[in-house]
Amino acid sequence: MIPRFISQEALKEWVEHLITQFSVYAPVQEKGDYDFAKIAHAEEIAFDFDRTRMSIKGFFLKPEEKLMSASASKGDPVASSPDTSKRIIFGARPCDITALNLTDNVFVKDFYDPYYMKRRQSTIIIGIRCTEKCRTCFCGTMDSNNPLTGYDIMLTEMDTGEILIQAGSDNGEKLFRGSRHLTRQSSEEDQSLILKTFKKITETFTPDIPTTGLKAIIDLGRTEFLWKKYEKICLSCGQCVFVCPTCWCFDVKEIVGADETDFGNLDKTARIRRWASCLYKDYHTVSGGHIFMPTVASRLENYYKHKLRGIPEKFGVWGCVGCGRCVSTCPVGIDIRESLKELTGD
């Protein structure tokens, strides 16, 4: 599709049109922060949002979900089927889309996770490109502010206030069927405008934290000073993990008798999956009491190394997208930007 332009007013009209066909989730202002919520009108959208409190990972990897139910005596496990009605996430930020591309790899590679992937396939993603840095973000450093895939539509606000529409998939193009009159096709004259805007964006997101040589430094293993330092203050509350768009750890438990329609039937069992955090002691404790990562320092090391060493090796991208959510949520002020600087000796 040749990129098209839409005015801010027409964009709202288009969203209203989408709401008639899909469930639309968009950032709204709530309790002093932005969060994704299902909207009924385009006015509800907080267009001035920088980033949402939680990333969009919860749309796909549910915070808590039933994987299957079975009979305690006879077995016969039945997988639960995720809700696959078509929905739109409007206003995903580039960093969250980059994170989604990474988690897609995890949940489709080697073993296919039907719960995650079915939700992924039934969701249309409309991204809004950042033109300014937000709060604690450092996405330029983590190369996550310009995802090439993972979205169906990407919107970019031009200097003139007009919005550039780029389709990232066939589904994205189809979304404009019947709404073309709201948009105008771009022409050669627009090239200088587009170039100017994107040049400005590129300059805004120039990497500013050193990452060169990080792999070798981590492999050398002389990183303990940092984990020991953080160990003294970390509360192991795991908040950084839950807000992180690239943390997909979960725990699984079996329960009996809690069936929604047949409460108290002891033969009915369910398998529940729930977000977990590798910073918790219980996460590494096996029956008999052995703890594989007994100290907070070793768990922090595992957390950071997975993002900065393990994921790059396996998937070729950083395991951190630099959204900065962990920085603003950490109750004791541990800052991954500072960690990177300390690790690379800057």
Partner: peptide, 17 residues
Amino acid sequence: PAWNMPVCNECKIKGNE
């Protein structure tokens, strides 16, 4: 079953402030 986690886990799951 016990999840053995701090309240922050459930709080973040609920998306609270």
